[in-house]
Design a protein around this nucleic acid. Structure first.
Lengths: 346, 346
DNA sequence: CTGTTAGCGCCTTCAT
DNA sequence: ATGAAGGCGCTAACAG
């Protein structure tokens, strides 16, 4: 039973393929009676147009690609989920590509997936600025996640790292902390640079000292930094993200260090499990699911041509500050105080 | 600058499109000199064949679809990741679809994605057997994850729930536990049925009593069951999965119940954060990443036609029991004893 | 070894 | 309102 084509339907309905095409696509210029006959024939043959052939002639695939650095990272998982759900709601499909942190492959991967889709959502925190700038035009339409766009021309959604870090620091400062350890992310990442800038800005207006430690983005990186953190004598540790914070706390626990008694630890992101560590992690909550939804909204707007969709996404009501309205939404992380932060010791 | 087509390359190289096609596809029947000229022209024009047009004529898209019930679930995330990486290694792309637990939509979603790809990997633990059976033929090639196939004809990969549950039970039994609470998953899910069967089998040969409690698959479900668990008087709780176990422990902690002092709690899956709960969770580790890799291996074998790939996947060496060799690998979960389980109280 | 031609399955002017 | 015909971009016979 080979799949039936539009010609089969035309034959069965006793019309031309053109009419079938029109009828099935809801073209109003078709006699209602005929249209019905065509529809019936299509159903009888279980016909439905080949997406492939359709894409070829229409020039659109109804699919977008999303390139992430690591599908194992909770943050990107949530972005993907938000994106996937939002896209599905508008009849779009999602092609995922995990670059596995291989920066050198990101370009090829993005380009490759782009050709099979109508656009790409790129999450590439470590790609050098110049390389990114060169890539963007070839990728259009493209929307960036967590990158400040060089040109104002490319839609970008992201979290306001600066605001998040500042909120965290203010919280700790209010608890009496004056000496901090910062566990950095990857050197070349934009998100790390943004955090560092916010930290330095804060340090300048408040008399605090900050020890910057080399780091990483995962659990192991945090676990490995414990001794270095203790060596600084800091009373509070600001981890690049929750994963790092969790790793740090894990090792700390092994060393018999009391958190937050001897050392306060805060993370970033508020991944699903941050609330269940021991002690529960104080962090800056980034609405990653929402970030994915916004990424889709931006993509959708671009695809829809000029002034297409003003589709209401998400839960509407409570919208973080000047977020979704803008073409470059910058979601403000919310401070979530839990058990891992407390008054400065001594 | 409109994209260049094969005709442009042909023109520039001074040959026919057929020759370009052959040269670029490595067809040996092309004069080496000509082939080189074609390649040069292609590079100059930055030409690369349209995947769409190619797919249409070749009948293959070099893409597979994977349908999961919930992208927010760590287990499915890992499967997706393993699958994605393995597929990429062989030049395949992955289209993801999150059915958002909507069983009634799964069929349509699978069918829809199938038409844009060469096959689908279906993770649908709750789809009724008969519906699944009816769907399978329309989906082929398809590989199932965590479903016992009715017909031996469809490739399936999965975790051996029975073995995992038994290992957990034996562990607890060895600690002196005789009265258990089982927090069930979704009623209609296959994976729940498998666990229940294993529990009953164990109960029959060891004098234990098991209280089955209605449940769910996520954190909240576990959190909501705490009182019910305590009411049974059981000394050990077996949660459907780690998420449920974590939810349970969370509420228990609020109630001032000592784990494992007063109640032992064990989970299932060994999600990435199971090791960092408080106390760390005893569980049965399911190699979900590997599951994804095996799913791809199965798909790849099917796509490759008859006796194609015996591609060595993964780390080769340490292979769980009679796993990957089979066409229906059933990975055996490994017991991971951590702090949440201890001697039975009183 | 290379060029010509016929589709892959569909949509869309262009006539009628 | 409907049909005929020309592509979308590429590959695979089928001749030379």
């Amino acid at each position: 039973m080979a799949r039936s084509t539009i010609a089969d339907v035309a034959r069965l309905a006793g019309v031309s393929v053109a009419t079938v095409s029109r009828a099935l696509n809801g073209n109003p210029s078709v006699d209602p009676a005929l249209a019905e006959r065509v529809r019936a024939a299509a159903i009888e043959l279980q016909y439905s147009a080949s997406p492939l052939a359709r894409s070829l002639v229409l020039g659109r695939t109804a699919t977008i690609a999303v390139v992430v650095p690591d599908l194992g990272n909770p943050t990107f998982q949530e972005v993907l989920r938000g994106l996937s759900l939002a896209a599905k709601a508008e009849g779009y499909h999602v092609l995922v590509a995990d670059s596995a942190e291989a920066v050198e492959e990101e370009r090829a991967l993005a380009l490759d997936t782009r050709r099979r889709t109508d656009g790409v959502v790129l999450v590439a925190p470590r790609m050098p600025d110049d390389e990114l700038a060169a890539l963007l035009p070839e990728l259009a339409p493209v929307v960036l996640v967590n990158r400040r766009p060089d040109a104002k021309t490319v839609p970008t959604v992201g979290a306001d790292y600066s605001a998040g870090v500042t909120a965290l620091l203010e919280h700790l400062h209010g608890l009496g902390h004056r000496s901090f350890a910062y566990l950095a992310g990857l050197e070349r990442s934009v998100s790390n640079a943004a955090r560092v800038a916010a930290i330095e800005a804060f340090a300048e207006r408040s008399a605090i000292t900050v020890h910057r430690l080399p780091g990483g983005v995962d659990f192991d990186a945090g676990a490995a930094s414990a001794d270095a953190v203790l060596a600084t004598g800091a009373t509070a540790a600001l981890a690049f993200n929750d994963l790092v914070a969790m790793g740090l706390m894990s090792t700390l626990q092994g060393r018999g260090v009391d958190v937050p008694g001897e050392l306060s630890v805060v993370g970033f992101d508020d991944i699903p499990f941050a609330a269940y560590t021991s002690p529960p992690l104080t962090t800056a909550a980034v609405p990653t699911l929402r970030l994915g939804e916004l990424a889709w909204a931006a993509m959708s707007a671009t695809l829809g041509g000029a002034g297409a969709a003003a589709v209401a996404l998400g839960s509407g009501a409570r919208e973080p500050a000047a977020a979704s309205a803008s073409a470059h939404p910058l979601l403000v992380p919310q401070l979530v105080v839990r058990g891992s932060s407390g008054p400065a010791s001594a």
